[in-house]
Structures are given as C-alpha cells and as structure tokens.
Amino acid sequence: TRVETATETAWISLVTALHLVLGLSAVLGLLLLRWQFPAHYRRLRHALW
C-alpha cells in the first residue's frame, strides 16, 4: 500500500505540473497572438462576444 500511495502522489504531481505547463503555454500563446495580431484579435473577440 505504501508503494501504491507513492505512485499515486507521483501521478498527481505529474498531472498538476502538466496542467500548469499547459495553462501557462495557453496564456503565453494568447498574449503572443494579441501582441502580434491586434486587429485580428479584436475582430476575433468581437465575433466571440
């Protein structure tokens, strides 16, 4: 049971790290898009909202 718990903890930390990385890359990508294509971003936002 001790090994299982350790594996579970490792998986949880791995998944958390993955989610953090994905979230950060998504935010960075959005910022980059907004910085590179302001007109396109505004049009996209206008279409979405």
Score class of each variant (00 low, 15 high):
T1H: 09
T1G: 03
T1E: 08
T1P: 01
R2N: 08
R2L: 10
R2V: 07
R2P: 12
R2S: 14
R2E: 07
R2M: 13
R2T: 10
V3A: 03
V3Y: 05
V3S: 00
V3E: 00
V3K: 01
V3L: 08
V3N: 01
V3H: 00
V3P: 00
E4G: 04
E4W: 04
E4D: 06
E4S: 09
E4P: 02
E4V: 11
E4F: 06
E4K: 06
E4T: 06
E4R: 07
E4M: 08
T5V: 03
T5K: 01
T5D: 01
T5A: 02
T5F: 09
A6W: 04
A6N: 07
A6Q: 06
A6P: 02
A6V: 04
T7G: 09
T7W: 09
T7I: 11
T7C: 00
T7K: 12
E8P: 07
E8G: 11
E8F: 07
E8I: 04
E8C: 05
E8V: 04
T9S: 12
T9P: 11
T9A: 13
T9F: 11
T9R: 15
T9G: 08
T9L: 10
A10L: 07
A10D: 13
A10Y: 14
A10S: 14
A10W: 15
A10V: 11
W11Y: 12
W11H: 12
W11K: 15
W11F: 09
W11L: 11
W11S: 12
I12W: 04
I12F: 11
I12R: 13
I12L: 07
I12C: 09
I12T: 09
I12E: 10
S13P: 14
S13V: 15
S13T: 15
S13I: 14
S13R: 10
S13Y: 14
S13F: 14
L14C: 04
L14K: 08
L14T: 06
L14Y: 08
L14F: 10
V15S: 13
V15A: 10
V15T: 09
V15F: 04
V15E: 04
T16C: 10
T16E: 04
T16M: 07
T16Y: 10
T16H: 06
T16I: 15
A17T: 06
A17E: 03
A17R: 03
A17Y: 05
A17F: 05
A17V: 08
A17L: 09
A17G: 09
L18P: 02
L18C: 11
L18E: 02
L18F: 09
L18T: 10
L18K: 05
L18M: 12
H19G: 15
H19F: 15
H19D: 03
H19E: 15
L20F: 07
L20P: 02
L20N: 01
L20M: 07
L20V: 13
L20G: 13
L20Y: 08
V21D: 02
V21W: 13
V21S: 10
V21K: 01
V21C: 07
V21R: 00
V21A: 14
L22F: 10
L22Q: 01
L22M: 06
L22W: 04
L22R: 01
L22P: 04
L22D: 00
L22I: 10
G23T: 10
G23C: 13
G23V: 15
G23H: 01
G23R: 01
G23F: 11
L24W: 03
L24P: 03
L24I: 13
L24E: 00
L24S: 06
S25G: 13
S25I: 09
S25T: 10
S25R: 02
S25Q: 04
A26Q: 02
A26N: 01
A26V: 11
A26D: 02
A26T: 12
A26H: 00
A26M: 07
A26K: 01
A26S: 06
A26Y: 02
V27I: 14
V27E: 00
V27Q: 03
V27A: 07
V27Y: 06
V27S: 06
V27T: 04
V27K: 01
L28Y: 06
L28M: 12
L28F: 11
L28K: 01
L28H: 00
L28I: 11
L28A: 13
L28R: 00
L28G: 14
G29C: 12
G29A: 12
G29P: 04
G29H: 00
G29R: 00
G29V: 15
G29W: 07
L30K: 02
L30S: 07
L30F: 14
L30H: 02
L30V: 12
L30D: 00
L31H: 04
L31K: 00
L31V: 14
L31S: 07
L31C: 10
L31Q: 03
L31T: 12
L32G: 04
L32I: 13
L32M: 08
L32K: 02
L32C: 11
L32T: 08
L33W: 15
L33G: 02
L33V: 11
L33E: 00
L33K: 01
R34P: 05
R34C: 15
R34E: 00
R34W: 10
R34Y: 07
R34L: 15
R34I: 13
R34M: 15
R34S: 06
W35K: 03
Q36K: 12
Q36F: 11
Q36E: 04
Q36P: 02
Q36N: 05
Q36V: 08
F37M: 11
F37N: 04
F37Q: 04
F37H: 03
F37K: 13
F37P: 01
F37C: 12
F37V: 08
P38K: 10
P38D: 07
P38M: 10
P38N: 11
P38E: 05
P38L: 11
P38C: 10
A39N: 14
A39E: 15
A39D: 14
A39C: 12
A39W: 06
A39V: 13
H40I: 13
H40Q: 15
H40N: 08
H40E: 11
H40T: 14
H40G: 13
Y41C: 13
Y41N: 03
Y41D: 03
Y41G: 04
Y41L: 14
Y41P: 02
Y41T: 07
R42C: 08
R42V: 08
R42D: 09
R42P: 02
R42Y: 13
R42Q: 12
R43N: 09
R43C: 08
R43E: 04
R43S: 08
R43V: 06
R43G: 05
R43F: 07
R43Y: 07
L44T: 03
L44C: 04
L44R: 02
L44P: 01
L44G: 02
L44D: 01
L44V: 08
L44H: 01
L44K: 01
R45G: 04
R45C: 10
R45A: 09
R45K: 12
R45P: 02
H46E: 10
H46V: 08
H46G: 09
H46W: 03
A47N: 05
A47D: 05
A47R: 06
A47T: 05
L48N: 01
L48W: 05
L48E: 00
L48K: 04
L48F: 03
L48Y: 03
W49I: 05
